[in-house]
């Protein structure tokens, strides 16, 4: 017997994501989902943003990695509450994992949580995790063809940070091409050239984060 069902495939994840969003909103906490390739500079960028925001806001971090707690130790050394989420092989973070981890934080004492997703330009884009905004990072050494090759990641992000921008003179990276490709899949995302090493461009990105916090 055939039965019509019409059931959204991602509903199992969406339900949890919506619940997290609601819980965080009740507590006045904003969550930003940071995504990009391994080595793009996700931890460095989060660290740089923390340095510029911590006077004003109380920040926590969820560090997603397949294995180990290297990044969590880096963040903990800054005196920032951090929880390591190991996916044990999974290529992305799901909403249910975030739901399990949030009780580890004192949400009343936080304004902002950065989630550093698994280093991967493909899978994390499929899963909402209760975030208020997504920040994708692409670094200059990765090449200017990445937006065209991994469109979903860049089509679902709210902002795109072009990290290691100080490396531009040493690579055949065409920023105009990247901006064009990004506009093709995502007309509204803000694009921020930054260097976590020199600090250039970070003020503009900090302003974007503050805008998310106020909205």
């Amino acid at each position: 017997m055939e039965i019509k069902v019409i059931h959204q495939i991602m509903e199992w994840n969406e339900d949890h994501s919506e619940q997290i969003k609601k819980n965080l909103a009740d507590k006045g906490v904003t969550m930003i989902n940071v995504m990009g390739s391994p080595g793009a500079g996700k931890t460095s960028l989060i660290t740089a943003l923390i340095a510029r925001l911590r006077e004003e806001y109380k920040i926590g971090v969820i560090e997603g990695d397949i294995a180990g707690k290297i990044d969590a130790e880096t963040i903990a050394s800054l005196g920032i509450p951090v929880v390591q989420l190991n996916t044990d092989g999974a290529c992305h973070i799901e909403a249910m994992s975030i739901e399990h981890i949030l009780p580890d934080f004192d949400l009343d004492a936080l304004d902002l949580i950065f989630v550093e997703n698994i280093g991967n330009l493909v899978c994390p884009a499929e899963f909402n995790i209760g975030e208020s905004a997504r920040l994708a990072i692409l670094s200059i050494p990765e090449g200017d063809d990445k937006v065209a090759k991994y469109p979903l990641m860049f089509s679902t992000t709210d902002a795109l940070a072009l990290n290691k921008y100080d490396m531009l003179p040493y690579f055949d990276f065409d920023p105009v091409r990247v901006e064009n490709d990004a506009r093709d899949v995502n007309p509204t995302a803000e694009i921020y050239p930054v260097s976590t090493r020199t600090g250039d461009g970070l003020d503009a990105l900090v302003k974007w984060v503050k805008g998310i916090l106020c909205s």
């Binding site: 055939e2 019509k4 069902v5 019409i6 059931h7 495939i9 089509s155 093709d184 899949v185 995502n186």
Partner: peptide, 25 residues
């Protein structure tokens, strides 16, 4: 994946379908 009008290349397009993912029956 490019959200451009194939006829005139404008980016001012409204997506009518393409993001679906559901179990139908």
């Amino acid at each position: 994946f490019r959200l451009r009008c194939p006829a005139c290349t404008s980016r001012k397009v409204e997506l009518l379908s393409g993001r679906e993912a559901y179990i139908e029956s």
